[in-house]
C-alpha cells in the first residue's frame, strides 16, 4: 500500500532549491516588517527630524541592535527549521548583541551626571515603548509562523522563542523609525523588554502553532 504512496510522491517531482528555507524565512519576516513600518508611519508617524536623525550615531545603533537581534535569531531559526539541525548552539549567540548594548548603556550611564540619569534611563516614552514594539512585532511574527509551517521544526518551544525574538527585532526596527529616544540605556532596557515580550509570546505559541 505504501508502494502507491511512493509512486504518487515521486511522480511529477519538482526540483527544490537549496535556498528554499532561507527564502521562506526572508519572505515571512520581510513582508511582516514592511507592514509594521507602514503601520508605524500611518499611526504613530515617522520621526519629523529624520534627516537630522540620520546623522546621529544613536539612530544607527538602534537599527543595528534591533536588526542584529533579528538576524541572529533568524540565523538560528534557519537551522531550527530542519530536523536534527544545529540551531540550539546558534541560539546562544543572541547574547552577543545584548551584551554589547548593555555595555554601551552602562558606559553612557556612568558618564552622565547623576541628576540627568533618571531621564537618560526613562526618556519620555518608556511606559509605552515595550508595548508598541510588541504590537509592531505581530506582523513579522505572523509572517514567520507562516514560513515555519512549511518547514520542519522539531523543537517547537525554542523555535517559537527564536521567531518571537526575530519578529521583536524586526518590529523594534520599524518602531525606531518613529521613536526619537536617543540614549543607550533606553535602548538596552525598553527595546530589549519589548523584544523579550515578543520572544515570550513566540515561545508560548510555538508548541501549538508550529506543529506539523
Amino acid at each position: 500500500m505504501t508502494d502507491d504512496l511512493i509512486l504518487r510522491l515521486s511522480r511529477d517531482l519538482k526540483p527544490v532549491s537549496r535556498l528554499t528555507v532561507l527564502r521562506r524565512l526572508a519572505l515571512g519576516v520581510g513582508l511582516g516588517a514592511a507592514v509594521s513600518a507602514a503601520l508605524t508611519g500611518a499611526i504613530l508617524g515617522f520621526r519629523t527630524d529624520m534627516a537630522a536623525a540620520a546623522g546621529e550615531l544613536m539612530f544607527w545603533v538602534k537599527l543595528a541592535y534591533t536588526l542584529g537581534l533579528a538576524g541572529v535569531a533568524l540565523w538560528a531559526v534557519e537551522q531550527l527549521a530542519r530536523p536534527a539541525g544545529r540551531g540550539a548552539r546558534r541560539a546562544l549567540v543572541i547574547a552577543a548583541p545584548v551584551i554589547a548594548v548593555a555595555a554601551l548603556a552602562l558606559w553612557q550611564f556612568a558618564h552622565t551626571p547623576p541628576p540627568l540619569r533618571p531621564h537618560l534611563v526613562l526618556g519620555d516614552s518608556s511606559a509605552l515603548c515595550p508595548w508598541c514594539i510588541l504590537t509592531a512585532s505581530l506582523p513579522p511574527l505572523i509572517g514567520l509562523v507562516w514560513a515555519l509551517r512549511g518547514l520542519a521544526p522539531t523543537r517547537l518551544r525554542l523555535t517559537g522563542l527564536m521567531i518571537g525574538l526575530a519578529a521583536g527585532g524586526a518590529g523594534a526596527a520599524a518602531y525606531a523609525l518613529h521613536c526619537p529616544e536617543p540614549t543607550a540605556p533606553f535602548l538596552a532596557i525598553w527595546y530589549s523588554l519589548g523584544i523579550g515580550l515578543a520572544g515570550l509570546l513566540g515561545a508560548t505559541l510555538g508548541p501549538r502553532v508550529l506543529r506539523w
Binding site: 537549496r18 530542519r82 530536523p83 536534527a84 539541525g85 522539531t154
Partner: peptide, 20 residues
C-alpha cells in the same frame, strides 16, 4: 518538507529527526 534537508548533514540524521 524535503527542502529542509541540509546537504551538510547526513540524510539518515534528517530522516530519523522526522521519524522521532
Amino acid at each position: 518538507r524535503r527542502a529542509t534537508y541540509d546537504p551538510a548533514q547526513p540524510v539518515t540524521a534528517w530522516v530519523y529527526g522526522i521519524a522521532r
